[in-house]
């Protein structure tokens, strides 16, 4: 299990950033996919923007983008009337259970 997964298991969302060229490496990896430099791990901004969304039964799901780079699919919770693309979202919860990754976001 890498650092991303062990932290996610504890409910912490961390990302990898290259120590040399400062590129954010997403999906998380031990080496930079631009210069192959070592990465360091840090918390990203919890505020992102809504890229797209849909709904299955009563579960809203979306793609959100953080720091203009990190895109994740997750559950969109809270009152959702007419969400707008580009609207701000906050990462509320994340985890890793039985090999299953999950992210929960809310519109703000």
């Amino acid at each position: 299990m890498n650092k991303f997964e062990s932290e996610l298991k504890k409910g912490n969302f961390i990302i990898s950033e290259c120590s040399d060229c400062k590129e954010i490496v997403w999906p998380p990896s031990n080496y930079c996919n631009k210069c192959f430099g070592h990465v360091k791990w840090r918390k990203p901004s919890e505020i992102g923007k809504l890229i797209e969304f849909s709904k299955k039964e009563n579960v809203n799901f979306c793609i959100a983008e953080f720091e203009e780079k990190i895109r994740i699919m997750g559950t969109l919770i809270g009152e959702i009337i007419s969400p707008k693309i580009g609207q701000r979202v906050k990462l509320k919860k994340c985890g890793l259970n039985d090999g299953q990754f999950n992210f929960t976001m809310a519109l703000i």
């Binding site: 797209e52 849909s54 299955k56 799901f61 793609i63 994740i72 699919m73 997750g74 990754f101």
Partner: peptide
């Protein structure tokens, strides 16, 4: 399985929904 950025929405119907929307 590798695509962790899809979270729990791994089944193809989820990307199909996003493209359609």
């Amino acid at each position: 399985d590798w695509d962790k950025s899809r979270g729990e929405f791994k089944h193809p119907i989820f990307w199909g929904s996003i493209f359609t929307k």
